[in-house]
Protein backbone atom coordinates (compact mmCIF):
# COMPACT_ATOMS: atom_id res chain seq x y z
CA UNK A 1 0.00 0.00 0.00
CA UNK A 2 1.54 3.23 -1.09
CA UNK A 3 1.29 6.27 1.08
CA UNK A 4 -0.86 9.15 -0.11
CA UNK A 5 0.98 12.37 0.54
CA UNK A 6 -1.17 15.14 1.87
CA UNK A 7 0.64 18.30 0.87
CA UNK A 8 -1.87 20.95 1.77
CA UNK A 9 -1.77 22.78 5.07
CA UNK A 10 -4.44 21.53 7.46
CA UNK A 11 -6.39 23.98 9.57
CA UNK A 12 -6.37 22.54 13.06
CA UNK A 13 -8.31 25.37 14.70
CA UNK A 14 -11.65 23.45 14.68
CA UNK A 15 -10.09 20.14 15.67
CA UNK A 16 -10.53 20.37 19.39
CA UNK A 17 -10.95 17.30 21.50
CA UNK A 18 -13.26 17.79 24.43
CA UNK A 19 -13.29 15.57 27.49
CA UNK A 20 -16.92 14.64 26.84
CA UNK A 21 -17.25 10.96 25.98
CA UNK A 22 -18.79 10.15 22.58
CA UNK A 23 -18.41 6.37 22.54
CA UNK A 24 -17.54 4.08 25.40
CA UNK A 25 -16.65 0.45 24.78
CA UNK A 26 -15.89 -1.74 27.78
CA UNK A 27 -14.77 -5.38 27.67
CA UNK A 28 -16.45 -6.04 24.34
CA UNK A 29 -16.20 -9.52 22.82
CA UNK A 30 -17.63 -10.95 19.64
CA UNK A 31 -17.59 -14.34 17.97
CA UNK A 32 -18.49 -15.40 14.40
CA UNK A 33 -19.57 -18.95 15.18
CA UNK A 34 -16.50 -20.44 16.87
CA UNK A 35 -14.19 -17.71 15.65
CA UNK A 36 -13.30 -15.11 18.29
CA UNK A 37 -13.17 -11.92 16.17
CA UNK A 38 -13.06 -9.25 18.87
CA UNK A 39 -11.36 -9.90 22.19
CA UNK A 40 -11.77 -7.67 25.22
CA UNK A 41 -11.97 -4.38 23.41
CA UNK A 42 -11.80 -1.31 25.66
CA UNK A 43 -12.03 1.99 23.86
CA UNK A 44 -13.21 5.45 24.84
CA UNK A 45 -13.71 7.99 22.09
CA UNK A 46 -14.03 11.65 23.07
CA UNK A 47 -16.06 14.26 21.22
CA UNK A 48 -14.07 15.74 18.33
CA UNK A 49 -11.56 12.88 18.24
CA UNK A 50 -10.32 11.62 14.89
CA UNK A 51 -9.27 8.02 15.23
CA UNK A 52 -7.65 5.95 12.50
CA UNK A 53 -7.89 2.18 12.92
CA UNK A 54 -5.42 0.11 10.94
CA UNK A 55 -4.24 -3.46 10.91
CA UNK A 56 -3.93 -6.52 8.65
CA UNK A 57 -7.05 -7.90 6.97
CA UNK A 58 -9.05 -10.15 9.27
CA UNK A 59 -7.88 -8.31 12.36
CA UNK A 60 -11.43 -7.27 13.24
CA UNK A 61 -11.17 -3.54 12.57
CA UNK A 62 -14.25 -3.38 10.33
CA UNK A 63 -16.20 -5.55 12.74
CA UNK A 64 -15.26 -3.20 15.57
CA UNK A 65 -16.77 -0.12 13.95
CA UNK A 66 -19.73 -2.10 12.65
CA UNK A 67 -20.52 -3.02 16.26
CA UNK A 68 -20.77 0.67 17.11
CA UNK A 69 -23.96 1.09 15.05
CA UNK A 70 -25.06 -2.48 15.61
CA UNK A 71 -24.61 -3.72 12.04
CA UNK A 72 -22.93 -6.51 13.99
CA UNK A 73 -24.14 -7.61 17.39
CA UNK A 74 -21.59 -7.95 20.19
CA UNK A 75 -22.01 -10.82 22.62
CA UNK A 76 -20.19 -9.64 25.70
CA UNK A 77 -19.27 -6.32 27.22
CA UNK A 78 -20.96 -2.99 26.74
CA UNK A 79 -21.09 -0.21 24.17
CA UNK A 80 -22.61 3.19 24.88
CA UNK A 81 -22.94 5.76 22.13
CA UNK A 82 -23.58 9.32 23.26
CA UNK A 83 -24.73 7.98 26.61
CA UNK A 84 -27.24 5.49 25.14
CA UNK A 85 -26.35 1.85 25.71
CA UNK A 86 -26.67 -0.56 22.78
CA UNK A 87 -28.94 -3.42 23.76
CA UNK A 88 -31.36 -5.44 21.68
CA UNK A 89 -33.97 -2.70 22.24
CA UNK A 90 -34.89 -1.73 18.67
CA UNK A 91 -35.85 1.83 19.65
CA UNK A 92 -32.36 2.48 21.04
CA UNK A 93 -30.71 0.94 18.01
CA UNK A 94 -32.63 3.11 15.55
CA UNK A 95 -31.93 6.18 17.68
CA UNK A 96 -28.19 5.48 17.74
CA UNK A 97 -28.12 4.70 14.03
CA UNK A 98 -29.68 8.03 13.20
CA UNK A 99 -26.97 9.78 15.26
CA UNK A 100 -24.06 7.82 13.78
CA UNK A 101 -23.24 8.24 10.10
CA UNK A 102 -21.53 5.44 8.22
CA UNK A 103 -19.56 5.37 4.97
CA UNK A 104 -18.93 1.96 3.39
CA UNK A 105 -16.12 0.58 1.28
CA UNK A 106 -18.51 -0.11 -1.60
CA UNK A 107 -20.50 3.15 -1.17
CA UNK A 108 -23.86 1.32 -0.97
CA UNK A 109 -25.80 4.13 -2.58
CA UNK A 110 -29.39 3.27 -3.50
CA UNK A 111 -29.24 2.70 -7.27
CA UNK A 112 -32.96 3.22 -7.87
CA UNK A 113 -32.95 6.74 -6.40
CA UNK A 114 -31.34 9.91 -7.72
CA UNK A 115 -28.41 11.45 -5.86
CA UNK A 116 -30.73 14.01 -4.28
CA UNK A 117 -33.25 11.34 -3.27
CA UNK A 118 -30.44 9.28 -1.76
CA UNK A 119 -29.59 12.24 0.44
CA UNK A 120 -33.13 13.27 1.42
CA UNK A 121 -34.60 9.82 2.07
CA UNK A 122 -33.50 9.35 5.67
CA UNK A 123 -34.08 12.97 6.79
CA UNK A 124 -37.62 12.82 5.38
CA UNK A 125 -38.56 9.36 6.69
CA UNK A 126 -36.56 9.16 9.92
CA UNK A 127 -36.21 12.79 11.01
CA UNK A 128 -39.58 13.83 9.50
CA UNK A 129 -37.99 16.88 7.89
CA UNK A 130 -40.30 18.58 5.36
CA UNK A 131 -39.31 17.65 1.79
CA UNK A 132 -38.39 21.20 0.69
CA UNK A 133 -36.17 21.70 3.71
CA UNK A 134 -34.50 18.29 3.32
CA UNK A 135 -33.75 19.06 -0.33
CA UNK A 136 -32.22 22.43 0.47
CA UNK A 137 -30.14 20.75 3.16
CA UNK A 138 -29.03 17.99 0.81
CA UNK A 139 -28.00 20.53 -1.84
CA UNK A 140 -25.91 22.30 0.79
CA UNK A 141 -24.05 19.09 1.64
CA UNK A 142 -23.70 18.11 -2.02
CA UNK A 143 -22.13 21.51 -2.63
CA UNK A 144 -19.82 20.88 0.30
CA UNK A 145 -18.58 17.62 -1.27
CA UNK A 146 -18.40 19.53 -4.59
CA UNK A 147 -20.93 17.64 -6.70
CA UNK A 148 -24.14 19.72 -6.60
CA UNK A 149 -24.43 19.49 -10.40
CA UNK A 150 -24.96 15.71 -10.18
CA UNK A 151 -28.05 15.94 -7.95
CA UNK A 152 -30.50 14.64 -10.55
CA UNK A 153 -28.35 11.78 -11.83
CA UNK A 154 -28.46 8.18 -10.66
CA UNK A 155 -25.54 6.60 -8.75
CA UNK A 156 -24.75 4.32 -11.71
CA UNK A 157 -23.89 7.38 -13.77
CA UNK A 158 -21.18 8.63 -11.38
CA UNK A 159 -17.53 7.68 -10.94
CA UNK A 160 -16.41 5.80 -7.84
CA UNK A 161 -14.94 8.88 -6.19
CA UNK A 162 -18.10 10.86 -6.85
CA UNK A 163 -20.25 8.05 -5.47
CA UNK A 164 -18.22 7.91 -2.29
CA UNK A 165 -18.56 11.69 -1.83
CA UNK A 166 -22.33 11.33 -2.30
CA UNK A 167 -22.27 8.60 0.35
CA UNK A 168 -20.52 11.01 2.73
CA UNK A 169 -23.07 13.74 1.93
CA UNK A 170 -25.90 11.25 2.47
CA UNK A 171 -24.59 10.40 5.94
CA UNK A 172 -24.06 14.09 6.77
CA UNK A 173 -27.65 14.95 5.84
CA UNK A 174 -28.75 13.16 9.02
CA UNK A 175 -26.62 15.64 11.02
CA UNK A 176 -24.75 12.81 12.76
CA UNK A 177 -22.68 13.40 15.89
CA UNK A 178 -20.21 10.67 14.94
CA UNK A 179 -18.99 9.47 11.54
CA UNK A 180 -17.71 5.95 10.90
CA UNK A 181 -15.64 5.24 7.78
CA UNK A 182 -15.15 1.61 6.78
CA UNK A 183 -12.21 1.58 4.33
CA UNK A 184 -13.73 4.43 2.32
CA UNK A 185 -10.97 4.57 -0.29
CA UNK A 186 -10.13 0.88 -0.72
CA UNK A 187 -12.44 0.35 -3.70
CA UNK A 188 -11.33 3.48 -5.54
CA UNK A 189 -8.95 4.07 -8.43
CA UNK A 190 -5.74 5.78 -7.24
CA UNK A 191 -6.68 9.05 -8.94
CA UNK A 192 -9.95 9.26 -7.01
CA UNK A 193 -8.62 8.57 -3.53
CA UNK A 194 -7.47 12.13 -2.99
CA UNK A 195 -10.87 13.71 -3.74
CA UNK A 196 -12.48 11.53 -1.06
CA UNK A 197 -9.69 12.15 1.46
CA UNK A 198 -10.03 15.91 0.87
CA UNK A 199 -13.68 15.70 1.84
CA UNK A 200 -12.79 13.75 4.96
CA UNK A 201 -10.09 16.25 5.90
CA UNK A 202 -12.59 19.10 5.62
CA UNK A 203 -14.94 17.20 7.89
CA UNK A 204 -12.15 16.72 10.43
CA UNK A 205 -11.31 20.42 10.29
CA UNK A 206 -14.89 21.20 11.32
CA UNK A 207 -14.47 19.12 14.46
CA UNK A 208 -16.50 16.02 13.55
CA UNK A 209 -15.92 12.96 15.72
CA UNK A 210 -14.58 10.36 13.30
CA UNK A 211 -13.44 6.76 13.38
CA UNK A 212 -11.80 5.70 10.12
CA UNK A 213 -10.71 2.22 9.21
CA UNK A 214 -8.17 2.96 6.49
CA UNK A 215 -4.75 2.15 5.12
CA UNK A 216 -4.11 5.76 4.10
CA UNK A 217 -1.24 6.49 6.45
CA UNK A 218 -0.77 9.97 4.95
CA UNK A 219 -4.29 10.78 6.07
CA UNK A 220 -3.60 9.32 9.50
CA UNK A 221 -0.49 11.43 9.94
CA UNK A 222 -2.22 14.60 8.77
CA UNK A 223 -5.52 14.55 10.64
CA UNK A 224 -5.72 11.76 13.21
CA UNK A 225 -5.11 12.50 16.84
CA UNK A 226 -4.96 8.80 17.67
CA UNK A 227 -3.97 5.76 15.63
CA UNK A 228 -5.13 2.32 16.74
CA UNK A 229 -3.39 -0.81 15.50
CA UNK A 230 -5.36 -4.04 15.68
CA UNK A 231 -4.33 -7.62 15.17
CA UNK A 232 -6.16 -10.89 15.88
CA UNK A 233 -9.19 -9.12 17.26
CA UNK A 234 -7.27 -7.08 19.81
CA UNK A 235 -6.08 -3.53 20.13
CA UNK A 236 -2.30 -4.08 20.01
CA UNK A 237 -1.11 -0.50 20.16
CA UNK A 238 -2.58 2.96 20.19
CA UNK A 239 -0.85 6.29 20.23
CA UNK A 240 -0.87 9.77 18.74
CA UNK A 241 0.29 9.57 15.10
CA UNK A 242 3.82 10.98 15.44
CA UNK A 243 4.79 8.56 18.17
CA UNK A 244 2.91 5.69 16.51
CA UNK A 245 4.75 6.00 13.21
CA UNK A 246 8.17 7.09 14.47
CA UNK A 247 8.43 5.02 17.60
CA UNK A 248 6.17 1.95 17.53
CA UNK A 249 6.47 -0.19 20.65
CA UNK A 250 5.19 -3.66 19.80
CA UNK A 251 7.06 -5.95 17.41
CA UNK A 252 3.79 -6.69 15.56
CA UNK A 253 3.26 -2.99 14.91
CA UNK A 254 6.81 -2.53 13.68
CA UNK A 255 6.39 -5.41 11.23
CA UNK A 256 3.08 -4.05 9.97
CA UNK A 257 4.43 -0.54 9.52
CA UNK A 258 7.53 -1.77 7.73
CA UNK A 259 5.30 -3.68 5.31
CA UNK A 260 2.93 -0.86 4.46
CA UNK A 261 5.41 2.01 4.51
CA UNK A 262 8.44 0.09 3.26
CA UNK A 263 7.96 0.51 -0.47
Amino acid sequence: MSETVIDQPIDRSGMKVSDEVAIEIVGMNKWFGEFHVLRDIDLTVYKGERIVVCGPSGSGKSTLIRCINRLEEHQKGRIAVDGVELTSDLKNIDKIRSEVGMVFQHFNLFPHLTILENCTLAPIWVRKTPKKEAEADAMRFLTKVRIPEQADKYPGQLSGGQQQRVAIARALCMRPKIMLFDEPTSALDPEMIMEVLDTMIELAEEGMTMICVTHEMGFAQAVANRVIFMDQGQIVEQNEPKAFFNNPQSERTKLFLSQILGH
Binding site: D94, R97, S98, G101, F104, H106, M174
Partner: peptide, 17 residues
Protein backbone atom coordinates in the same frame (compact mmCIF):
# COMPACT_ATOMS: atom_id res chain seq x y z
CA UNK B 1 -26.40 -6.99 -2.26
CA UNK B 2 -26.14 -7.05 1.55
CA UNK B 3 -24.80 -3.52 1.39
CA UNK B 4 -28.25 -2.20 0.52
CA UNK B 5 -29.72 -3.62 3.73
CA UNK B 6 -26.76 -2.32 5.73
CA UNK B 7 -26.93 1.17 4.23
CA UNK B 8 -30.65 1.35 5.01
CA UNK B 9 -30.02 0.15 8.58
CA UNK B 10 -27.12 2.54 9.08
CA UNK B 11 -29.35 5.49 8.18
CA UNK B 12 -31.75 4.55 10.96
CA UNK B 13 -34.62 3.30 8.77
CA UNK B 14 -36.71 0.70 10.58
CA UNK B 15 -37.57 -2.68 8.98
CA UNK B 16 -40.80 -1.62 7.29
CA UNK B 17 -39.44 1.67 6.00
Amino acid sequence: PRGQYEAADALGLDYWK
